[in-house]
């Protein structure tokens, strides 16, 4: 078996944060006597990622995704547990390690604001000591792949959010990193731009066999890029496997779409009515009930058309996050 690129074992991060109630009185009291509270942002998480894998890292806000990414990129020291990436311990911040990774945060900008991106590219070339030839090759490759010809010559401040993100990603990958940490790279972008960035990441992964760990709130990103997803919630690892398995395991409902000859019939006794669109009704039915309900519908009513569908991944994910229970207590 190939040695994993990223090895995470029982990783835990505890923040110690000041605790106080609202109001002036409490604020004054906390000046003198401050109470501290431990918050476990990441709680005994373990996983391995193989070379070339693109893994989606999912969880609601505050689940511990960014904290984990920060520990992987060497910004935060773990409270306990073990991390190795490419054979390095990230928190030591070896230059040899930092040269091989990149961290992109969708909501933060690192380009020179008033200058064309080409100047920022030059700065990164110097910082990463990229050989001139390799730099030009990579730069031109990215410019072509992302259609940046005109954008890299304009001051960054004049670019739209999506354009800026394209340039930002290009700048972050100039050193051709082996491991990519992408924290919501498509946040706030329109659908076309999201697709563009997505296909670029896929292309980079294919060409350079890079390992990608990606967080996103857009399931389209995850569906398009990630064969594997890791779901964390309240700092716990909830799920690690393929997207299809995630749906199979957590989707408690299916949707049944029915078209009837007679639209006056009341379908609420068959399941929860989600929408009624002229003569088509959409029902939400517990997964285990689906065969029975389908049979009853067909027997009882003049059905013209009937479909049974898996729920949207978005809905499944929302449902996963809605539950508080850690892994052990979930139905297998």
């Amino acid at each position: 078996m190939v040695k994993p690129v990223i090895h995470v074992d029982q990783l835990t991060k505890t923040y110690v944060i000041p605790e106080r109630e609202g109001g002036l009185k409490a604020a004054l009291r906390s000046l003198v006597h401050r109470k501290w509270r431990d918050v476990k942002a990441v709680d005994h998480i373990s996983f391995d990622i193989q070379p070339g894998e693109v893994v989606g890292f999912l969880g609601p806000n505050g689940a511990g995704k960014t904290t984990t990414l920060k520990m992987l990129s060497g910004l935060l020291h773990p409270t306990s547990g073990e991390v190795t990436v490419l054979g390095f311990v990230p928190q030591r911040r070896d230059k040899a390690y930092l040269k091989q990774i990149t961290l992109v945060m969708g909501n933060r900008n690192q380009l020179q604001w008033d200058l064309p991106a080409l100047d920022s590219f030059e700065l990164n070339r110097a910082i990463y000591r990229i050989p001139t030839r390799q730099f030009r090759e990579t730069r031109d490759e990215f410019i072509e792949l992302l259609d940046l010809q005109d954008l890299v010559r304009k001051p960054v401040r004049n670019l739209s959010l999506g354009e800026r993100m394209k340039v930002e990603i290009a700048a972050s990958l100039l050193q051709r990193p082996q491991v990519l940490y992408l924290d919501e790279p498509t946040i706030g972008l329109d659908v076309t731009m999201q697709a563009r960035i997505r296909s670029f990441i896929a292309e980079y992964n294919r060409r350079h066999d890079a390992t990608v760990l990606l967080t996103s709130h857009y399931m389209a990103d995850v569906e398009a890029l990630c064969k594997r997803v890791i779901v964390i919630h309240h700092g716990h690892l909830l799920f690690d496997g393929s997207l299809a398995d995630l749906v199979a395991r957590f989707a408690a409902f299916k949707t049944i779409g029915v078209t009837l000859e007679d639209t006056s019939a009341d379908l609420s006794r068959y399941g929860e009515i989600m929408s009624v669109d002229s003569d088509r009704v959409t029902l939400r039915v517990p997964k285990t009930e689906t065969p029975r309900v389908t049979a009853r519908l067909l027997a009882d009513l003049p059905v013209m058309d009937l479909t049974v569908e898996e729920p949207l991944i978005e809905d499944v994910i929302r449902q996963v996050f809605a539950q508080e229970a850690p892994l052990e207590e979930l139905p297998a």
Binding site: G74, Y97, K99, R108, N109, I127, Y128
Partner: peptide, 18 residues
Amino acid sequence: QQGTFDYVLTKPADAQVL
């Protein structure tokens, strides 16, 4: 304050110099 200091720390150069 804004967390963009992370970008300085992820660069393979001396953080203080940078």
